[in-house]
Design a protein around this nucleic acid. Sequence first.
DNA 1: GTCTATACACCGATAGAC
DNA 2: GTCTATCGGTGTATAGAC
Lengths: 206, 206
Amino acid sequence: MSYSLTVLEVSSRTWQEKRRESARQEILAAAWEAAHEHGLGALTLRDVAARVGMRAPSLYWHFDSKMALYDAMFGQAWASYLEVQKELVARPSASPRRVLKTIARTFFEFCVRDPVRHELMNLRSIPRFTPSPEAYAPAVEVLEQLRGLLMRLGISDDAGADLFTALLAGLIDQQLANEPGGDRWARLLDRTVDMYATEMNVPQDD
Amino acid sequence: MSYSLTVLEVSSRTWQEKRRESARQEILAAAWEAAHEHGLGALTLRDVAARVGMRAPSLYWHFDSKMALYDAMFGQAWASYLEVQKELVARPSASPRRVLKTIARTFFEFCVRDPVRHELMNLRSIPRFTPSPEAYAPAVEVLEQLRGLLMRLGISDDAGADLFTALLAGLIDQQLANEPGGDRWARLLDRTVDMYATEMNVPQDD
DNA sequence: GTCTATACACCGATAGAC
DNA sequence: GTCTATCGGTGTATAGAC
């Protein structure tokens, strides 16, 4: 159940550990490739192994189980979005509503751009997969960062953050479920954020 | 790929057909039971078969495949909600916002009450399962009925309906994903509908 | 017509040789 | 570290019993 998250790994001391770490990364890359090709749920260890020139049982030296592989992918995906959001939050801030719209659109497009990744990050589509605390950590940090940002805009109650995430989740879900590749719900983003901002008494732009 | 939807089946003429129909219903009931017990994705034909005193291959006389079984369950679930919504729409209408809140809460609670059913109806959690047009029909009718209702409240554009479904989907998703059994997002229902109604220029109650 | 027995290909996972 | 061999599990095709 426990294993180290490749992306967040800091101290790989010996060269053996570095070698092993790069093998993990190679396997992970192959797993993403396979998932994009055949679907997240259709991932098989034999396929992943073949892509890195191994046999399926050999993967067990690098990952405890298939779920551990999913787990590492989950952690990678959220760590990746955390980087995006960090860079976004650090930027010189615009008007409150502009900030809300930018963060909403950034997350929306991050999800819609890669439906397989979104499926792993946000849907619970793999029957018995539950992310480990280690893999879940960057997701928690994303949410904490969002809470902080909302707070600075004057939205300090939990309900305000809960509503914001629900609105985003709903738009993304509907877009991907009913019109993948389209923009029918993407077009509602700004309007939805404005509606939300008004509800939350965030001052208007002009 | 094609087969008849048990729930909507109208004319079972001969007694053989009736017998066969009741066998299908028995299998479906066993499938729901198994899904609730072990999870939707963990459903196995051997388990379902055992519950009705059969062997796994025997199910193939009643259903073309495991996916056909999922498909029939999908159709059953949506047909069931269609009945609920029909009865609700037929009732003497209250104020516009009351109507919106009632329909929102009805769908929300229908979904949250049975997460396994919701997973099948609204999430795409089964890897290669796509509902057939026959099974999807009641879902389409639910949406058409909703559009008609919104129209009568003065919300006639597609965007208005799209936004309403997205708001609902988001609240349900977050409730079930982050706090199954709780009411943290359920408590946001009325507020969200009011926010939406204001955006859509639906007159206030008082 | 209804069901069973058998079999097949594939899966995740383990044991142990090298 | 990576292999081969193998285990118990799955969905499913088919042949045939009755």
